[in-house]
């Protein structure tokens, strides 16, 4: 199924939390500031309803997104007030992919955990949470995964400042 087919199906089964979609487009020749957008189309989902959405897509017989390939976050810029949550879904039976994106406010970065739907999300969420400071509610094991337990700051945020020293070892 191509993206349009998948999106129509999502609309027709009324998957929870869908707020819209975005597709690549050509730049507008009249407007010089508009550079267009390339790459993949994606579905926009409300972050608070992401687990329900994933469950719905996993169990739907004609979508069958049974494998979560990736869950990650993106900090678009310092000024932007939102973090993106990017989920890549994969269906082994139907052989199609889907990119899902959620906009999560930086001020209160709390969203429910998807571990109950895809257990593969467990480590991905741990990584997201330490790198971006997102709290996943209901996560069974919310420790740091890559960074030391006492690490200060969230390195992949755009406003992160590199540490001066750690446990007496200079960082410069």
């Amino acid at each position: 199924m191509n993206f349009q087919g998948i999106y129509d199906r999502i609309r027709s089964i009324q998957a929870p939390g869908v707020t819209g979609m975005d597709e690549p487009r050509e730049p507008n020749p009249q407007d010089k500031k508009d550079k267009g957008r390339s790459g993949d189309p994606y579905v926009l989902v409300d972050p608070q309803r992401l687990p329900e959405f994933l469950e719905c897509l996993r169990d739907d017989p004609s979508l069958k997104f049974e494998l979560m390939a990736d869950l990650t976050a993106t900090d678009p810029s310092k000024e932007d007030g939102y973090l993106w949550i990017n989920v890549q879904l994969l269906s082994l039976v139907r052989k199609h992919r889907l990119a899902v994106k959620c906009l999560l406010p930086k001020e209160n970065a709390v969203m429910p955990s998807s571990v109950s739907v895809h257990r593969g999300a467990q480590w991905a969420e741990r990584e997201c949470s330490e790198m971006y400071g997102i709290t996943f509610e209901g996560h069974p094991d919310p420790r740091n995964i890559l960074l030391p337990e006492d690490w200060i700051g969230h390195p992949l945020r755009k406003d992160y400042e590199f540490p001066e020293e750690y446990h007496g070892i200079s960082c410069k």
Partner: peptide, 8 residues
């Protein structure tokens, strides 16, 4: 060009 892409 601006945009986002995932390739596996």
């Amino acid at each position: 060009p601006p945009g986002e892409a995932y390739v596996g």
